[in-house]
Amino acid sequence: MKARRLQDIEEYVHSHKNVTLDELCQKFDVSKNTIRRDISQIVRKGSIEKVYGGVASTTDPIPFENRGSKHSFEKNGISHLAASCIEENDLIFIDSGTTTCHMAKYFPTNISFTILTNSLDIINGAAELPLVNLLVIGNTFKQKTKSFVGIDEPRMLDKYNVNKAFMAATGVSITHGLTNSDLLEFEIKKIIAQKAEKLILLADSSKFGKSTLLTYASLEDVDIIVSSNPLTNQFQAFCAAHNIEVKTS
């Protein structure tokens, strides 16, 4: 219970940049003494610092355009392996993200399939393939993540029978599942994750054991995890217990 609260407090501070102790007490329904002890424990990690009347995040988010270079070798290997899961006549969804975007390099060129996506990188990569039918969702372009976000009518996605959804996540946790931080992206992710026949998660080793603000799917809902390195014993045991296939590049 305490470990989860510490994680939630840390994430809350990072998402809000600066927060007061009173705000944290109200948010997490604990006393000021408890918050002070929790903050002292988190501060030792170096990710937040005490300021007058509260705390502040010391971790600057990495811009999306620079995140692709981090773990780039891993991301390419993951995407190559994930693309090998595409079969003739599949209707697949490809999520926006710095790992999923690499799939465009490895699309099979000798089979017909349909891509549903909100990722600009995937749109550009698929546009030149004559056998690919390309469907785009999202009504607002978000330059920071190179994705189209927001849908006027969530039921519009009901007409698509998605065989496989290739999903990205900012964090992957046994407790919190597949998480991200953007409310507009979250809406599309959650709907697709619920309706896809097969949910395929692409995540490099840095994503596991972390969580962010919003959970769009439980980890047990995943059918296949494609990653770069063997998972920790804890994640391996969870996957075995829930019949989740693990592929490593």
Rank of each mutant, 00 (worst) to 15 (best):
R67P: 00
P63G: 03
F93Y: 14
K190F: 03
E65W: 07
I62A: 08
I151G: 15
A56S: 09
A217T: 05
P108Q: 01
D8R: 06
N118A: 10
E185P: 11
G68L: 09
A104S: 13
A83E: 00
L219P: 02
S96T: 11
C25R: 12
H14F: 10
S205T: 08
T170H: 08
K198N: 13
S147M: 06
G68H: 06
G97Y: 05
A126I: 01
E245M: 09
A168F: 01
S15N: 14
K207G: 01
N163I: 05
K159E: 15
V136H: 04
F107G: 00
Y216Q: 04
G54K: 11
I225E: 01
L183M: 15
N180V: 06
A240D: 08
A217H: 03
D8F: 02
F166E: 05
L202V: 04
A56N: 03
N233M: 12
G53T: 14
D223Q: 03
Y216H: 10
R36F: 14
F208T: 07
V55K: 08
L201V: 06
R67V: 02
E10A: 08
E23T: 13
L201S: 04
I123M: 11
T117K: 05
D22V: 11
I174L: 05
F28P: 06
L202R: 01
F64M: 05
Y52K: 12
N110R: 07
A104L: 01
V246D: 06
F64K: 04
G150P: 08
T109W: 02
F107C: 00
L91A: 00
G54W: 08
T20R: 14
L131T: 09
I122Y: 00
F64S: 14
K75M: 01
E220N: 13
K159T: 14
P154S: 13
D158E: 15
S47H: 04
Y160H: 12
K17C: 06
H14D: 09
Q7M: 06
I123K: 05
D8M: 11
Q143M: 13
E74I: 04
S227T: 15
P130K: 07
P108C: 05
Y52A: 07
Q194T: 12
